[in-house]
Structure formats: structure tokens, C-alpha cells
Amino acid sequence: MLGKSLLAAVALCLIGPSAAQAHHSFAAFFDANKTVKLRGTVTDFHFTNPHGTIGLDVTDETGKVQRWRAETNAPVVLMRRGWARDSVKPGDIVTIDGWVSRDGKPYLRLRAAFDANGKPIGQMFGQSDG
């Protein structure tokens, strides 16, 4: 679960189950009713199937850093949504939101990503699969 110290950086909100999308056991692995929004520094970006991942260091207001990892849709899907291998680079400041994993780890399924200026990176997920 999220620590109290991270609450300043994390916003949980409720969304409808219909927003759930993609494969890889989404319904079993992630909570379709709980999302998290994070701003942090990218540590690494893997652009390989079955899922890409973004490592993100998130700093709370007390200076504590927690490493999160966001799982993306399969890069074959990402490429049709305007993503490329270099869409996200280590050191970038990004804001991401997505569905949290049911196991309580700092792991999520990406729904949307924005660069440091708030510009969307690629298309939001769940709108044009395939």
C-alpha cells in the first residue's frame, strides 16, 4: 500500500470499471477501480513486448524517494499510438497515471503520460486498441 509520506505526491481516484483495458491478466492483476497519479524522474524505459515499462523515482514532500514502475501496453500497440523507443528517456520529468496493481507494490498499468510541460506523450490508452 502507499505510505503516508507519499500521499502528497499521489492522488487516488475512483473510475468506472469500463476504463479497464489491454491484456496480460489486467482484471486479475490491476484494480480497475483505483488509479494513481505520479510525477517523477524517469530512471529507465523498456520498449519491448509483451509490455513496456517506465521506471520512475517519485519524491515526496519530505524528500523521500520511492521507485515506481509503470507497465505500458505492448509496444506493438504503443507504436500505433504515437510512441517510439525514445518517447521517454532517463532523466525526463514526467507525470503518469494508471491503475494500481492488486499486490500493493509500487506498480501500475499506465493509462496516460505527460511530459514536463504537461504535453501528452502518445495517445491515452484505452481509446484505440489495435
Partner: peptide, 20 residues
Amino acid sequence: CDPSFATQYQAIEEPAETGR
């Protein structure tokens, strides 16, 4: 398919958390 995806997930079994 690249199976190293699994190790990326496994690596967060113990979240990297450091005080600064």
C-alpha cells in the same frame, strides 16, 4: 517477446526507497 519484463517486475519486490 522479451522475458526480461518479468525481472523488471520482480525487481520491485523490495521497493527501492532511499531518504534524501
